[in-house]
Nucleic acid binder design. Structure first.
Length: 563
RNA sequence: UGGCCUAUGGUGUAAUGGUAACACACCGGUUUUUGGUGCCGUUAUUCUAGGUUCGAGUCCUAGUAGGCCAACCA
């Protein structure tokens, strides 16, 4: 038995240390708390992977909690999409929770805070309050309403709840410290008036709790042991603890466990953006076809593109967890999907940029059925039949009249193998008035058939080409994607808008010919088009029209050398 | 002109005071009926300067660089 010592990331170390200090393992509990105001993207997958991963590791419950405290931005559509994405990734939540379920509890606690003189109603405009707040380098000053009496505060807050005031007229603030070096402690707002229908509570409430007041207390109510979030929430930790400790004073019997917030750096991916605001701009301005456009870094986009849950989870695991700012090379994500698909995707033949090839010594009208291996990486995958005939399509790039020794493909006078078929030799080509090649003529060696066992079939020729028989080919639409942005970090430029880096050629649609076995493939099925890349069947496919998405190309050292 | 956080190859992550490791990327070789896959190999004075220590990537101090914080957003 090899006792392999796996290194722990800093969050796992914190948990291990807590356990060592006497924290009961059974009390471990995590949560993933998205706001339902958009679709999940690959960045969220890191947060999902951390919390749900910890849950799997320690056999601890993980709640899915919708942080739905701002009815102006949130919708049921997003709740549904988020649930679907997390399920698709293969994670299971213990409880489906909503911050809005805690509105009454939160309100009751807020009333206690007011009674204890630790919260007050401020009746200024947001501009006035911003003025008094100071700056990171200058202390703030107290609001004129800061010392309002408890009775007045109580009555005002009740009337806010009763809907007696217009939006923007009053807010409830925690009374902490206007001079704190941490801006968040300068009497943060706990409640604001918002006369908007909420996707779950309807019009029951017209005051809504702010993030800081809601989030920590939701963790506390759910008795989350370790509340993990991204680095930008670090300054919120002091406030998280302040609210938590206040509430603990009068709720410790019901809720004995004090949650702990810890922060990790979020994921950035090269050549894309990760902000919901920017992503929704691409959708709104119809730069992409929707949240699930295969070019989008959303989970739904990646899914449609042909990424698998396994590849995404492997990716997240490889990326690791730390507190450093980072930009992950998108090449790592691409490596992970190739790694997965190489093992699982059946190999087929499809020609994307066809040119006609005629085997002049192959009898006219003759047809053969050849046997092709489905996946050399998987013995269980078996084989299939592929029809062969005198006239084929091959890739235009696979023929050159004259070529040097480095070119392993077809040229005049040179031999090459047709995958799973015969060795052929280039003889001549036919051109149109513009000099464009319209037809290539070749001869074949009838004894060289793949797998026939003859001496001729064992001959080594340098190149192997994929092909489809013209008479049997099925036509299909193939959508080929390039990165959405031409810049490595389109969202990080202070002087330039990310939209300036849009790649105008991120989508290329082409008509291709594929082997007939693909005729009956289903939406979502994934294949390796040999020598080209991995492709899946898009949802736009109908009985009349086959549509493929190119998930990712094969590694191509030849193309790289010719750059 | 404040507070907090971070600094290890091109990118990311490890090394828990004791020989800087792994993955991707890159470059080269090898195998191959996919220029794919697999296999092998090359690529680092651990931001700087001091200090503590027998010994520092790791601890301390200062500097430098980057990030976060002034929404009735989350």
């Amino acid at each position: 038995m090899s006792e392999e010592k796996k290194s722990l990331n800093f969050i796992e170390q914190i948990i291990e240390e807590d356990i060592k200090q006497g924290f009961q393992k059974e009390n471990l509990r995590f949560r993933f708390p998205p706001e339902p105001n958009g679709y999940l993207h690959i960045g969220h997958t890191k947060a999902i992977g951390i919390s749900f991963g910890l849950g799997e590791q320690y056999n601890a419950p993980v709640n899915l909690r919708f942080d739905d405290t701002n009815p102006a931005k949130e919708e049921q559509e997003y709740v549904d999409a988020i649930k679907k994405d997390i399920e698709w990734l293969g994670y299971q939540w213990a409880n489906e929770c909503y911050s809005s379920d805690y509105f009454q509890q939160l309100y009751d606690w807020a009333v206690i805070l007011i009674k204890e003189g630790k919260a007050y109603v401020d009746s200024q405009s947001s501009e006035e309050m911003a003025q008094q707040k100071g700056t990171p380098t200058e202390a703030g000053v107290a609001s004129p309403y800061r010392n309002r009496g408890v009775e007045e505060n109580l009555s005002l807050f009740q009337r806010m709840k009763a809907g007696e005031f217009e939006e923007g007229t009053h807010v409830l603030r925690a009374k902490i410290d206007m001079e704190s070096p941490n801006m968040l402690l300068r009497d943060p707002i706990m409640y604001r008036i918002l006369k908007k229908a909420h996707h779950r509570t309807g019009t029951n409430w017209v005051i809504y709790p702010m993030y800081d007041w809601t989030h920590g207390e939701s963790d506390y109510i759910e008795q989350i042991s370790h509340s993990l979030c991204s680095l930008e929430f670090k300054p919120h930790r002091d406030l998280y603890n302040w609210f938590r400790d206040e509430v603990y004073n009068y709720s410790k019997n019901q809720y004995p466990l004090l949650p702990k917030q810890r922060e990790f750096s979020r994921l950035n991916l090269s050549y894309t953006i990760m902000s919901k605001r920017k992503l929704s701009k691409l959708v709104d301005e119809e730069i992409v076809s929707g949240w699930d456009d295969p070019r989008m870094p959303t989970i739904s986009g990646l899914r449609r593109r042909g990424y698998t849950p396994k590849a995404i989870r492997n990716f997240i695991e490889t990326v690791g967890v730390s507190k450093r700012e980072n930009v992950i090379d998108v090449a790592l994500l691409e490596f992970k999907i190739r790694e997965d698909l190489n093992k699982t995707a059946n190999r087929v033949m499809g020609v994307l940029n066809p040119v006609k090839l005629v085997i002049t010594n192959y009898p006219e009208g003759k047809e053969e059925v050849l046997i092709a291996e489905n996946n050399p990486e998987d013995e269980q995958s078996g084989s299939r039949e592929v029809p062969f005939s005198r006239e084929l399509y091959i890739e235009r790039e696979d023929f050159k009249e004259e070529a040097n020794r480095k070119y392993f493909r077809l040229s005049l006078g040179k031999e090459v193998r047709l995958k799973n078929a015969y060795i052929i030799k280039g003889e001549s080509c036919v051109k149109d008035a513009n000099g464009e090649i319209t037809e290539i003529h070749c001869t074949y060696d009838p004894l060289s058939k793949s797998g026939s066992g003859t001496e001729e079939s064992k001959r080594k020729v340098k190149g192997t080409l994929h092909w489809v028989s013209i008479a049997h080919a099925v036509s299909a639409e193939v959508r080929i994607y390039d990165r959405l942005f031409s810049d490595e970090a389109p969202g990080s430029h202070k002087e330039k808008d990310f939209m300036e880096f849009l790649n105008p050629d991120s989508l290329h649609i082409t008509k291709a010919f594929v082997e007939p076995s693909l005729q009956n493939a289903n939406i979502g099925d994934q294949f390796q088009f040999q020598r080209l890349g991995y492709f899946n069947i898009d949802n736009d496919t109908s009985p009349e029209k086959l549509v493929f998405n190119k998930t990712v190309g094969l590694r191509d050292t030849w193309a790289k050398k010719n750059k």
